[in-house]
């Protein structure tokens, strides 16, 4: 599998590690435990189809990437720096 890093270009997937769903970008603000925290850490839509998740280009530029891809065909549809995606979410 190959992922096109916005900084390094098209690279073999062995250079990346995967964390999980895009939800990790939206850390809840509550100080105590809450349903939002249960959502954030545990519950997943787990779609068979298009999803977005977080990858780390550990063997490359050490950027975190938000990757839009298909969990059935493994097509990679879009890749952006997670930093930009996070800032875009306000």
């Amino acid at each position: 599998m190959r992922i096109k890093c916005p900084l390094c270009g098209d690279r073999d997937s062995r250079e990346y590690t995967y964390m999980g769903h895009e939800t990790y970008l939206d850390r809840p603000g509550d100080e105590g435990w809450s349903a939002d925290w249960d959502d954030y850490l545990h519950l997943r839509d787990n779609p068979a189809g298009v999803t977005r998740d977080l990858w780390y280009h550990g063997a490359g530029c050490t950027s975190w990437l938000l990757v839009e891809r298909d969990t059935v065909t493994h097509d990679i549809l879009r890749v952006e720096l997670a930093r930009d995606a996070k800032r875009g979410r306000g």
């Binding site: 975190w64 997670a82 930093r83 996070k86």
Partner: peptide, 13 residues
């Protein structure tokens, strides 16, 4: 190291 990168880029840019 990876966790600190995650916090800087994904939680607290």
């Amino acid at each position: 190291m990876k966790h600190l990168d995650f916090v800087q880029q994904c939680l607290r840019p």
